[in-house]
């Protein structure tokens, strides 16, 4: 186990953990705080904490939920302390110009860069409108694919709460996204 080796001061183990989890964590934090640079800084902060205090991890628990919990706390602290609103990425500029066709979505494939980029942009915009509580569940489960149980551990709430928050978050996201698709369709028809 990498984490156990890290607790013994193994630098290679740390590198292994960074390689394996930093991308996912940064992605999670970016969705949570809505700012790529901040997410990058927070990722560094989380891993610095891990580097300096590996023994704050309880080996009886699961590393993945623990590190996500640390990341989540870092995000909440940042949002709270800076008192900054979540700024949707891509807001302003061409962000107000819906160009993604419903047909494009139907044919969506991850490699289609333009659609991907558009969807990213829209998603962050919609995410910015969700409350913190809904957004964190949404990002953990719907984006990161985490199980309800793990998300409950990360957040520190019952599984049922995760389920209902996720349902509400998806609903809000879906309704908002549909509005955008409708607007896009109308534009396409003009």
């Amino acid at each position: 186990m990498l984490m156990v080796r890290l607790m013994d001061g193994d630098r290679d183990a740390f590198d292994g953990l960074f390689e394996r989890y930093s991308g996912r964590l940064r992605s999670f934090m970016f969705r949570f705080v809505g700012d790529r640079e901040v997410a990058e800084d927070l990722t560094q902060e989380v891993f610095l904490k891990l580097y300096r205090k590996p023994r704050s991890f309880d080996p009886r628990g699961r590393f993945i939920t623990w590190i996500f919990a640390v990341a989540r706390n870092a995000c909440i602290d940042w949002l709270r302390l800076r008192k900054l609103p979540v700024v949707p990425v891509g807001a302003g500029g061409d962000g107000d110009d819906p160009t993604l066709e419903p047909a494009a979505l139907a044919a969506y494939a991850p490699n289609e860069t333009a659609v991907h980029h558009e969807l990213q942009k829209r998603m962050q915009e919609v995410l910015g409108r969700l409350s913190d509580k809904l957004r964190e569940v949404f990002v953990l489960c719907a984006v990161q694919g985490m199980s309800y149980e793990d998300a409950a551990t990360v957040i520190g709430c019952p599984v049922k709460t995760v389920s209902s928050r996720l349902s509400r978050a998806r609903d809000q996201f879906f309704q908002s996204f549909k509005k955008y698709l409708d607007a896009s369709r109308r534009r396409g028809g003009q």
Partner: peptide, 24 residues
């Protein structure tokens, strides 16, 4: 949404001088 991934570039970690956990 579940297929959305971040671009892979990530700043590399700037490790402190001490060994991991040395100050813990």
């Amino acid at each position: 949404v579940s297929e959305l991934t971040e671009e892979p570039e990530l700043r590399s970690f700037v490790a402190p001088r001490e060994a991991p956990g040395e100050l813990d």
